[in-house]
């Protein structure tokens, strides 16, 4: 009797054994699908990035470098890059990943984003499909590829940096005719890519999806530091499809400069904060009860750190505009809406 039971026991466990073997095989198969080589986590992303990127060579002006990076955005040889002096000369060339060099022409430019669309007379199956979706969130791994400092010579692959997305934000740098800055959306990343020649290179996710294109070397006036950033794919999409971003053109409006009736306390030589010195009678300011010694901190969301900021922001206000002031009175912060009147 004992013996009988003994056999049945092992038969039962035998079945279990078989079941486990099957499970193990399934697990093993599942593993072979997932990336298993730790050193290859970013390999695919880099391979994709290398094939779809180019080196751009052009004119040199003084000490300004005549080279940059770029990304291929169509099978018929359209290339996106950043603007720079290298675009100005007649000798604009593009080097593909296979080492071949092609002459290029500038098709189109965008001043706010400082990007340019080039055309070469070559077709390639390797290009980034530009969509209007925003790829990658804060904290996501990203790989940046570029020809920073022209380290990659001839057909050598581009330099690669690993980092994470720091922040998605929008930069409202003021554009002046002489000092062309940057204005638009950006993806800040924490890899140091703000270097000569890096502009135009791709920033891709671990899966090889395009996050954006490395921007020109610019300094943030907020931090007085160089920014490491990419122009997001959605902005590139708008440019390629010639969709104007929703930024209102500076329409010539027939309205008069606005005034609030505020005189600020002004001292030479220092960055005076915008303290009210006096308030004109029967003015918008007196109507809402603004007083001397009130400190104007914000106008319509713009920080007013100094009297200069006040002058600049006020100059853009027209008669009849609603103006929201944030004012410090003693240790209270108050929000005051008022309507600007025509400047006397």
């Amino acid at each position: 009797m004992t013996n009988k039971y003994f056999i049945s026991r092992w038969t039962a466990t035998g079945f279990l054994c078989l079941a486990l073997c099957v499970t193990n095989m399934a697990v093993a198969m599942a593993q072979s699908i997932a990336p298993t080589d730790l050193n290859a986590v970013f390999r695919d992303a880099i391979e994709i990035g290398q094939k779809r990127s180019v080196k751009v060579y052009g004119a040199t002006a003084g000490r300004v470098d005549g080279y940059a990076s770029g990304i291929i955005v169509s099978p018929d040889g359209k290339i996106l890059t950043m603007q720079g002096v290298f675009l100005e000369g007649s000798n604009l060339r593009v080097g593909l990943a296979d080492g071949t060099i092609h002459e290029a022409v500038v098709l189109r430019r965008n001043r706010e984003l400082q990007i340019a669309l080039l055309q070469i007379a070559a077709s390639t199956p390797d290009y980034f499909e530009i969509t209007d979706a925003d790829v990658a969130d804060k904290g996501d791994w990203v790989v940046a590829l570029s020809n920073a400092f022209k380290v990659a010579d001839g057909d050598e692959p581009l330099s690669v940096n690993l980092g994470v997305v720091t922040l998605r934000t929008t930069m409202h740098a003021r554009l002046t005719p002489r000092d062309v800055a940057f204005s638009g959306p950006m993806v800040l990343i924490d890899a140091i890519i703000s270097n000569p020649g890096a502009a135009g290179g791709p920033v891709v996710t671990q899966e090889g999806l395009l996050v954006g294109m490395i921007g020109k070397v610019i300094n943030s006036s907020d931090t007085n530091t160089r920014l490491n950033y990419a122009i997001p794919t959605s902005a590139l999409y708008d440019f390629i499809h010639d969709r104007k971003p929703d930024v209102a053109e500076h329409a010539v409006v027939e309205s008069r400069p606005g005034d609030l009736g505020i005189h600020l306390f002004r001292l030479g030589g220092v960055r005076s904060p915008a303290y009210i010195d006096r308030v004109r009678e029967n003015s918008p300011a007196s109507e809402v009860g603004l007083k001397p010694d009130d400190l104007i901190m914000h106008i319509n969301g713009h920080k007013i750190a100094t009297v200069n900021d006040y002058d600049r922001v006020l100059s853009e206000i027209r008669a009849g505009d609603e103006v929201i002031l944030v004012v410090a009175r003693g240790d209270k912060v108050i929000r005051i809406p008022l309507i600007a009147v025509e400047k006397q």
Binding site: G163, V164, T166, L167, T169, T170, L188, D190, D222, T223
Partner: peptide, 13 residues
């Protein structure tokens, strides 16, 4: 938050 965005900017290391 020094990049002028109320959203917190991060860096890892």
């Amino acid at each position: 938050v020094g990049f002028g965005d109320a959203n917190v900017a991060i860096s890892t290391g």
